[in-house]
Design a protein around this nucleic acid. Structure first.
Length: 474
DNA sequence: GGCGTTTTTACACCC
DNA sequence: GGGTGTCCAAAACGCC
């Protein structure tokens, strides 16, 4: 039975390898064609796009898919013949084994050099320089905005615009996570895709360094979340379905290993007032808190019966946390009352008929928006979040698209959520309806995942399942 | 509650 | 501009 399975995976693996080779070959040809006749092609090919480094391809593209498909299907990753496919040079077993991950192989515990996992042909220097230049300024950025590092503003939806130059294909394939650098000084977007690629797009730097697009492969499986430390932006934390949390230290130019587990990590978040703690959702409903100072994890709480899709904190009271889960609920928790029980009581449970893909507190903390597979966007309000309105919103993204997650803008007025009709539906919490849909002829795909720029009102990034990023601005 | 099965269907490429 | 191949995820349902 088991050996039959393995044979099946081996077959699929070979198919995958072949397909990836073909994909990469076509990309290579494509980029060469683009160089030769850049402006003669269609609109889609004129937009900025990542460029693959030829030397990195064979090494980086093929094995990744294997480990991912095994992992996500719950198979042991170290099946015969697959153990040494990632990085042959680091087979040494000298790395001390972490108490969290007794059976991880050594290669995964070693930090990855940025240049070793670089997939794009762009050199690292301009990106590193840029990030280091803004991370110096960040404390002043934060201070002027007080708690939360977020600007509150009322914006005019009509003036939000998607300019053609603010569109780029940052990575190949499906984007799962998108995040702006929390700086008012640069416009930089970071995205994570299904293959484990991390893409950087410096929107303003096309003259200095090509399209300003950089791509790395720190993970062998989908990048489920990205956190950027607002007070030290040279630290970029990423987590993956493969069970690893890696922290990119831009100063050291390494992707360090922060945490490792056998289970998939589906979500990750930080409290705005505590940069040393990392909250993440692991496996089928487990929440864990990682303390960076002690380099250890707290006890694990069993908050849900299925995967935790999002974790968010109330900006006005970061002791209040909300989790959304595929068990059909979103729950609010008081962190001071989680206690020692492995199954603590929630402050409030919001039930939905099907999986809840997101739950986010509004900028003031007074409202909370959920997006669920029962085709609803819900907004709860009131002293105990007991008042609720539910809005029909078609959320059947199917197999090829990342699920929709409605995000807040820059005050409590609007929730932005992807539309299957190639647009962004904007829900007014006051009018309790979709008041407008952001549309553009430049959008060739459906934006699924969003991030509202924390310091730049009106600037919204939308990421697609084809690796594109759209940035609206005022 | 744990499992196997069924269902969903957008996008990019290529001519 | 239209046809075709990708895809092997995730969730719900049915069965025991």
């Amino acid at each position: 039975m088991a050996s039959q399975r393995l044979t099946e995976y081996e077959r699929k693996r070979l198919e995958n390898i072949k397909r990836n080779d073909e994909l990469l070959a076509s990309l290579k040809i494509h980029s060469k064609l683009a160089d030769l006749s850049a402006s003669a092609k269609r609109n889609r090919e004129q937009t900025k796009s990542y460029k693959i480094s030829p030397q990195k391809k064979a090494k980086s593209e093929t094995p990744i898919v294997i480990r991912r498909s095994l992992r996500t299907q719950g198979k042991k990753p170290d099946s015969p013949g697959l153990a040494d496919d990632f990085n042959e040079s680091s087979k040494k077993q000298t790395t001390p084994k972490s108490q969290v991950t007794p059976d991880k192989s050594a290669r995964e515990l070693t930090p990855l050099l940025m240049r070793d996992v670089r997939v794009s042909s762009e050199p690292d220097e301009p990106l590193v320089k840029k990030i280091l230049s803004v991370s110096k300024d960040s404390p002043s950025n934060g201070a002027k905005n007080g708690v939360g590092m977020r600007v509150t503003a009322s914006i005019d939806l009509e003036s939000m615009e998607l300019m053609p130059e603010n569109i780029a294909r940052v990575v190949p394939n499906r984007i799962l996570s998108v995040k702006f650098f929390p700086s008012a000084d640069i416009r930089m977007v970071v995205v994570g895709n299904k293959f484990g690629d991390l893409g950087f797009w410096n929107i303003d730097s096309e003259t200095e360094d090509g399209d300003g697009i950089y791509m790395y492969r720190p993970h062998p499986a989908p990048v489920s979340s990205i956190c950027i430390q607002p007070f030290s932006m040279n630290k970029i934390i990423t987590c993956s379905y493969h069970g690893l949390i890696r922290t990119l230290d831009v100063k050291k130019e390494t992707f360090d290993l922060t945490y490792s587990t056998e289970d998939a990590i589906f979500s990750m978040s930080q409290r705005s007032d505590d940069v040393n703690s990392l909250y993440f959702g692991e496996g089928q409903g487990v929440l864990r808190v990682w303390d960076e100072r002690s380099n250890s994890s707290s006890m694990a709480w069993n908050l849900h019966d299925s995967r935790i899709n999002t974790i968010d904190f109330n900006p006005a009271n970061t002791n209040l946390m909300v989790t959304s889960s595929s068990d059909g609920s979103a729950c609010i928790w008081d962190l001071r009352k989680l206690g020692k029980k492995s199954n603590p009581d929630s402050v409030k449970e919001i039930r939905r008929d099907r999986a809840v893909h997101s739950a986010y507190f509004s900028p003031s903390g007074n409202l909370l928006a959920t997006t669920s597979l029962d085709d609803k966007v819900g907004v709860v309000s009131g002293a105990n979040y007991d008042d609720e309105f539910l809005l029909y919103h078609y959320n059947q993204t199917g197999r090829w698209l990342s699920s929709f997650k409605g995000v807040w803008g820059w005050d409590d007025s609007y929730v932005f959520v992807g539309s299957m009709k190639r647009g962004v539906d904007v829900i007014s919490t006051e009018e309790k309806r979709i008041v407008t849909t952001l549309e553009s002829p430049h959008m060739t795909a459906i934006p699924c995942r969003f991030d509202a720029h924390p310091l730049n009102p009106g600037m919204l990034a939308g990421a697609t399942s084809g690796g594109q990023v759209y940035v609206w601005s005022l």
